[in-house]
Design a protein around this nucleic acid. Sequence first.
DNA 1: CCCACACATGAGAGCGCTTCCACCGCAATA
DNA 2: TATTGCGGTGGAAGCGCTCTCATGTGTGGG
Lengths: 327, 327
Amino acid sequence: MTAERTATLDDVAKAAGVSRATASRVVTGQGPASRHARDRVAAAVAALGYVPDAAARALVTRTGTRLAIAVIGHTAAVLDDPYVGRVLTTAAHVAAEREVGVSLHWLPLNDPGSLARLADGRGLGGLVVVNPTRPALETVPRNLRGRVVAIGVGARDVPSFDVDNRAGTEGVVRHLVRTGRRRIAMVTGPAWLPCGDRAVEAYRQVLHDSGGEPRVVPGDFTAVRGARAAAEIMARWPDTDAVFALSDLTALGVLDGLHALGVQVPGDVAVAGFDDIAFAGLSRPALTTSTHPVEEIATAAAQAVLDRHNTGRATFFPSRLVVRDSA
Amino acid sequence: MTAERTATLDDVAKAAGVSRATASRVVTGQGPASRHARDRVAAAVAALGYVPDAAARALVTRTGTRLAIAVIGHTAAVLDDPYVGRVLTTAAHVAAEREVGVSLHWLPLNDPGSLARLADGRGLGGLVVVNPTRPALETVPRNLRGRVVAIGVGARDVPSFDVDNRAGTEGVVRHLVRTGRRRIAMVTGPAWLPCGDRAVEAYRQVLHDSGGEPRVVPGDFTAVRGARAAAEIMARWPDTDAVFALSDLTALGVLDGLHALGVQVPGDVAVAGFDDIAFAGLSRPALTTSTHPVEEIATAAAQAVLDRHNTGRATFFPSRLVVRDSA
DNA sequence: CCCACACATGAGAGCGCTTCCACCGCAATA
DNA sequence: TATTGCGGTGGAAGCGCTCTCATGTGTGGG
């Protein structure tokens, strides 16, 4: 019997000379217990290094209190972007405050069913899906309905939290127009990310209003793609006088690409981004952009799902124009 | 009995007309099962939308197959740094490949006991601790021994994975010396992070060898702190001709602070960082730095803990000098 | 002095699952 | 025909915990 076994509640009860029921009451803090029993159990817990088994507890309480965060779209692009990391850490922080565990799920883009699979259901308190596609959201299992929120685009029964892409884009493009730019190109996000559509729409609208022709180049939120986009844009439309990228990372890439081409920023071409990441203010020229309150969004999403506060369809967080040197 | 209840294995067995034991065998794929039984159970599973209860399964199998990632030191600094996000996403990716879940834990710096608490033990397959302190590592519960690795500094029974801070720092500082700099200042990482010690040592050593006096200013890996550090350095030692920061983020801040002071980089003062983050190549002037193979490190750590491959004390990943424009 | 009423306690059921074990039938071998 | 072997199967135990319920054990009021 010298086998190294982790202590169970029974061991604690035996050591403390009480029943398992009493030990449980003391450990969980639920129900009455005499001073004497409390002390003895506490001592036993300390002596044995007892840690409650989460699985056993979850099994009986059925109170799945764990926040799952699923990130859709597993590409290197997502990895490089500080965005996902910030969402993760923020949500984890909110969860930690409420002493609920967080589980992380990294889902491929082309396998919507994986969302259903991760829901080993009853253990889950809620689910935050980052950057979902609508089809993926349709596969959320029924036992999770009402406990799922999306960061990005939502769906039926799935409220969404996102930055106001439309207004943010409008703000930036209007600023470009206001400062005399007319031949404004745009580098979008990845095509599969539906929330970028609103931004493209807004861009087209403002351009239409100001008599410009849309010049849209597809992007993927990476800096490398931004540099290539810059070359592409200047080749196709040499008279371009401004580039708006739907991501600061891409905008910084554009800056780099333009620099390589010998194009002056903002002299020849103005450049603006979106997100206001930490580095936006550190580039030379410092990047003009519009804020993306990631922490606020992630906090709201995590709270909503944790508080079962599933009201409303979609919440858009305001984006604020930050004018620096590049535009 | 119209109550909306999630299906259990019993329900499946009943619907398929087999015993629970057989249903379990089919679902888990363990043990023999006739073709006929397999088909019927599979049909029942599909019809009922059955999803196994992870808690119940974990309770009986005792095979905690879940990778826990604990990040120590919950400060805004950690949040802004892309480092943690990259570690997280990489580790989660490794775990996903092996179809094991990942749980995320955000631990305060001053409560080492929290590490013990998160180990609701038996549900855990392994634990990766990011940026631990030695005291925190001492509190790892015994039932987890041999299944814990550290990214950063390690401890007894806890192998560590980290970049070779010493060699990396040597490389950078030697480069500065080689290019004629002699009055080289260093901005360190946060004091509680023990893995920075080796870097400071290396810096002192190289300076000693080249006849320079150490000029150490404490940092915290943030850009803001870097800007302030630049001002501090130029005030205390106006003849400084190079600044080495133990983090690119800080180095970019130094660049910014120097710019504000009207100091030319690299003309008056050379600046070098450490990490080679995505933005290092995008700053103006582009940052000279030394690589920090975060993805490699996180992958190795996750694999080690998942494979129970607990050999060796510490693995240092080589850092490669990247010379750009700032030094 | 006895009953009512708190409070503290322990026995035991049961959460949903895996897995040991005994069992059954059937083909292959002696 | 009697014996072995084996794939397939169901009964039942039990993982570690929570929680209901019945049973003490002490207090104060009638």
